[in-house]
């Protein structure tokens, strides 16, 4: 190998490494607004499998949930969550509640219990998906219950954060802005979401410890 060849090889190697590194460094976080929402396939309470890809062309809401969390309880006891679910599923939105509680947790509920809870609360989501190993939760970086994500009809993430601006257990009564309703109204009207990122609030998601 001549010296010139060696130099150009080294140079191209360096360029590749630097480009690669900067690509990695500047790769958007998985939850970045405007980027493609990570795909997943999960099973619901009735044993039916759902993939995000199945809902292409529809707006999808992901609601991280845990019926043993008082924040979740508050939003269901006030009927706040169900009325949102009802209002927007009626408009063609797919509403998926995702439960990432691990099966070692004291708050873990069996499918049978979750079904009873669904009846008791008159939940109006499209489906509740079981993510006991927390893989999808980690993929979306869901931290709290509730933690809300909205994916538009092109599969892009357009909202992530809290359900509203009232961090607490008022179940929406103290809220001035319901971010999810605001974002869904904008998306359905083909407009840009005014507030696309907020800090979610609630209990921690009861992930499995690795």
């Amino acid at each position: 190998m001549t010296r010139k060849n060696f130099l150009s090889l080294a140079l191209s190697l360096a360029v590749t490494v630097i480009t690669g590194a900067s690509l990695v460094a500047f790769a958007p976080a998985p939850t970045a607004i405007g980027s493609a929402a990570p795909s997943f396939t999960l099973t619901d309470l009735d044993g039916k499998s759902h993939s995000l890809a199945d809902f292409k062309g529809k707006t999808v809401v992901l609601e991280w949930t845990n019926p043993n969390c008082p924040f979740v309880v508050a939003h269901y006891k006030s009927n706040n969550m169900q009325s949102l679910q009802k209002k927007y599923t009626d408009k063609g939105v797919v509403w998926l509640a995702v439960n990432s509680t691990n099966d070692q947790s004291g708050e873990f509920m069996s499918v049978a219990d979750l079904k009873k809870n669904r009846t008791e609360w008159k939940s109006a989501y499209t489906a509740q998906l079981i993510d006991a190993d927390g893989k999808v939760g980690r993929l979306y970086n869901a931290k709290t219950t509730p933690h809300m994500f909205i994916v538009d009809k092109d599969g892009k993430l357009v909202y992530q954060g809290g359900i509203d601006d009232a961090a607490g257990t008022s179940g929406g009564k103290d809220a001035k802005v319901n971010y999810v309703a605001q974002a869904l109204d904008a998306v359905l009207a083909g407009k840009e979401v005014p507030t696309a990122t907020t800090k979610s609030y609630g209990c921690s998601v009861k992930y499995a410890t690795k």
């Binding site: 969390c69 008082p70 924040f71 947790s105 004291g106 257990t169 209990c203 009861k206």
Partner: peptide
């Protein structure tokens, strides 16, 4: 006073 107390579970 208002608080949230958590162990694994949380109780306001």
């Amino acid at each position: 006073l208002n608080w949230l107390v958590c162990q694994e579970s949380c109780i306001p």
